[in-house]
Design a binder for these strands. Structure first.
Lengths: 152, 152
DNA sequence: ACGTCATGTAACATATATAGTTACATGAGA
DNA sequence: TCTCATGTAACTATATATGTTACATGACGT
């Protein structure tokens, strides 16, 4: 399987939602992401359970943001997904009897642990509000590009 | 499939080989690692191509170390495996047209890049000789444990 | 009440990558 | 020339993310 893209996907959804008031149906969001509504519900389930978003059934239902975007970090979102594995590599055997394997594991675990810690730390530094601000900046420069195209 | 354990596996092999003079057949090594000889040949192929080990066919053949263990780092070994993916996560789409996706990718790429760079850097700091020294230390304390058990 | 809409979820299908296994060709040495 | 060992292709097994279908649950409007 290709690499896990759920974090990327769910952030995409949240940022789309932050651009305009909701609610958004899974189908609408799925079309924007070129995927299936069930996939949306799947990756959003954890966020709903933690109260970052709300979902309503029936007419006028769908997904709504339910958190302060400046208080939720990528690390929170990652945790809401169930904290899936970060690294593609690991030890052959955990808690091996073989001393050779223990020596190898010790060295690798050190490096793996450092990398995971750094990644989580970086995730913790970025809020959804910061992502939104970056997006608005990108939207702004695109608008300017459009205008200069008009002028040209 | 569970996480890629080839680096762990090949280091295990190399450390075993460093403990006594070779050559070692794939079958011997496979038994020590509780796996299949073909798996050994597979993960050793890249190391052979780069000259870190040598392989000989026929009677008395097998695998031999062919490098200065103090000059080869985990990073070299990782590269010899073909530099497989380090991270289990990635972006949904590379080079997306959607600005939302671009904003998400930019944030994640930053974190992913940092983590990968750190991991490679850590790999580069550890030589096979250092692993061997750590192993001998572990072998030593096990021997002492055995002796104190005799005394008790 | 009833029909429609939307989520919730199970079940199944698809795709991809590692690991394990079998089979056989190649080549070295006794 | 027989045996041993590597080199490699091909196939199987397994795990996981993703895509899809089907249906139950519940909310809203008529």
């Amino acid at each position: 399987m290709r690499r896990d893209s759920r974090l990327s996907g769910v952030l995409h959804v949240l940022l789309h939602m932050a651009q305009q008031p909701g609610p958004f149906t899974s189908e609408t969001l799925a079309k924007a992401m070129d995927t299936n509504p069930v996939v949306i519900r799947r990756i959003m389930a954890g966020l709903r359970d933690l109260g970052y978003v709300r979902s309503e059934k029936g007419h006028g239902g769908g997904w709504t943001l339910a958190c302060d975007l400046s208080k939720v970090t990528l690390r929170d979102v990652y945790a809401a997904l169930g904290s899936p594995p970060l690294l593609a590599m690991g030890n052959r055997t955990e808690a091996p009897g073989c001393l050779v394997e223990q020596a190898v594991n010790a060295a690798l675990d050190q490096a793996f642990g450092d990398a995971e810690a750094l990644l989580l730390s970086r995730f913790g530094e970025v809020t959804l509000a910061m992502l939104g601000a970056d997006l608005r900046k990108r939207l702004g420069s695109r608008k300017l590009q459009g205008m200069s195209a008009h002028h040209a």
